[in-house]
Simulated scan of single mutants.
Amino acid sequence: MTPINILFVCMGNICRSPLAEGIFNHLVAEAGLTGRFAIDSAGTGGWHEGEQPDRRSIATAKSHGIDISGQRARRIRSSDFRDFDLIVAMDRDNVAALEMIAPPEATLHLFGDIALGTGEDIPDPYNGGPAGFELVYTRLLTGCSTLLEALGAERASCNGNTSSVR
């Protein structure tokens, strides 16, 4: 079975999109569907290329049993539009940035539309504190769970504190 290739995109690929990648990977693994998906993340800007996710994103993910410390930031590449079945941006600004460089056949979506059904932007927590990262985690967990179900996969029950919110 050919995997569904999903790319999560934010501005610098250090806060929201690495969290989305980590959460979705975790949910897929819990559901026993690892071979059915290939998940990655990227940024529309290249300021942080090669860096780990923001320490607050790492800490937030870790508090929910998810390790994203091995991820490295990268900028979106032209080949991503060919290689990924689904490109999901965290906010409208990043959708607009992607639309400027994407070929017409690219499949671009706002996370708030495709995963949450609310049309909301996932706020960038970069300039805030831990509470903002926790809020982003909560929205991403909800959306990633819904997205996994929408893609035809029944998610197994979450164990541990992955689905908990402080």
Results as ranks from 00 to 15, higher is better:
9 V>A: 00
137 Y>E: 00
95 V>Y: 10
22 G>V: 05
79 S>W: 07
151 L>W: 01
106 A>H: 07
62 K>W: 11
64 H>C: 05
88 V>L: 04
78 S>R: 12
74 R>Q: 04
103 P>V: 06
94 N>R: 01
111 F>E: 06
44 T>D: 11
27 L>G: 09
43 G>R: 07
67 D>K: 01
5 N>H: 13
10 C>K: 03
119 G>F: 07
75 R>M: 14
125 P>N: 05
97 A>K: 05
149 E>Q: 13
118 T>F: 11
87 I>P: 00
152 G>V: 09
98 L>M: 07
53 P>K: 00
71 Q>V: 02
60 T>L: 03
160 G>H: 10
119 G>N: 02
117 G>V: 07
19 L>D: 00
159 N>E: 15
109 H>F: 14
111 F>W: 03
139 R>A: 13
154 E>Q: 09
102 A>G: 08
73 A>V: 04
90 M>H: 04
2 T>H: 11
33 L>G: 15
35 G>K: 10
97 A>Y: 06
127 N>F: 15
90 M>A: 03
47 W>R: 04
117 G>Y: 03
119 G>A: 01
61 A>S: 06
77 R>K: 14
96 A>D: 13
47 W>E: 10
42 A>M: 05
93 D>H: 15
120 E>M: 14
45 G>F: 09
31 A>E: 10
26 H>L: 06
3 P>Q: 02
35 G>F: 04
99 E>H: 00
149 E>M: 03
74 R>K: 06
76 I>W: 10
145 S>D: 12
22 G>E: 03
131 A>D: 15
112 G>Q: 01
